[in-house]
């Protein structure tokens, strides 16, 4: 029979992020597998440099670059994320029970981010993929402008569940500079909302399969009905070129 996981509680009140991250590192090196952080108020880079599949439960408002370079841990936030959640994250999971700020998934190159509600500007900017590494972001609400800017790979899903009946996504410049990866957006976007470098294409069977899996995961995290979410049509966006600026300086 498997032993119960070793669990640690830390009250983060007044602890500077350097000290907090040092304590997390020491705890994980000492064999701790689950960590509860309470009273988190803006400490940065939580979860960086841990390299093991530990579980971290954050109560409060983690600071910028949450899960920066994350490589293995699973982070659950009971609160809102700030800017740069999942910055250059390589593997693991971030699950945010709230909203997240600008540049969520910035330069992400692996792992999964789930945000229950809305996100800010430039989400998934410069997200990229390579061979087996395919980063994934699922946004439950809607996004602000420059969604998927310069996106170079990975999967970005926007469900629009916070929109009221009849309300539309208002993000403009979606996929500006995008040159890799795919976006699935529940609902419709007007042409003017798209960057010059992306186009809408029909959903195929493989898209439906992937989307079903991701929506089911989202629904399980936040106690929603996946079937309900999937009953509405999605818009699929892909880049028109893998090198949109290849001829920018070629005269």
């Amino acid at each position: 029979m498997r032993q119960q996981k070793q669990r640690l509680k830390i009250d983060a009140t007044g602890i500077h992020y350097k000290d907090l991250n040092t304590r997390l590192r020491q705890a994980v090196e000492g064999g701790i597998e689950q960590i509860d952080l309470s009273n988190v108020f803006g400490q940065r880079y939580i979860g960086t440099d841990l390299h093991r599949p530990v579980e971290i439960y954050i109560h409060g408002t983690p600071g910028n670059d949450l899960a920066c370079f994350l490589d293995g841990p699973r982070i659950v936030v009971y609160g809102n994320g700030q800017d740069g959640c999942g910055n250059t994250m390589n593997g693991g999971e971030v699950i945010i029970h709230g909203q997240a700020g600008d540049a969520t998934g910035y330069s992400m190159r692996g792992g999964k981010v789930f945000v229950r509600d809305d996100v800010g500007y430039r989400v998934a900017i410069h997200m990229k993929e390579y061979e087996g590494q395919r980063p994934t972001i699922v946004i439950g609400g809607t996004a602000q402008h420059f969604l998927g800017e310069y996106m170079a790979g990975g999967v970005l899903v926007v469900l629009g569940l916070t929109l009221r009946p009849g309300e539309r996504h208002t993000a403009n410049f979606v996929g500006t500079g995008m040159h890799g990866g795919v976006m699935y957006i529940r609902g419709k976007l007007e042409d003017y909302q798209l960057g010059k470098e992306v186009g809408q294409v029909p959903m195929e069977e493989a898209d439906h399969t992937l989307l079903r899996e991701l929506v089911q995961e989202y629904a399980a995290h936040f106690d929603r009905d996946a079937g309900d979410i999937l009953s509405q049509p999605f818009t699929k966006l892909i880049p028109l070129s893998s090198r949109p600026y290849g001829r920018l300086y070629a005269y």
């Binding site: 509680k9 009250d11 009273n39 109560h59 409060g60 709230g98 609400g141 309300e167």
Partner: peptide, 16 residues
């Protein structure tokens, strides 16, 4: 109107 917002009733004390 139309602002991206979330209703934010959260308890911040550690419940576990």
């Amino acid at each position: 109107v139309g602002a991206t917002l979330s209703i934010a009733a959260q308890t911040l004390t550690c419940a576990v």
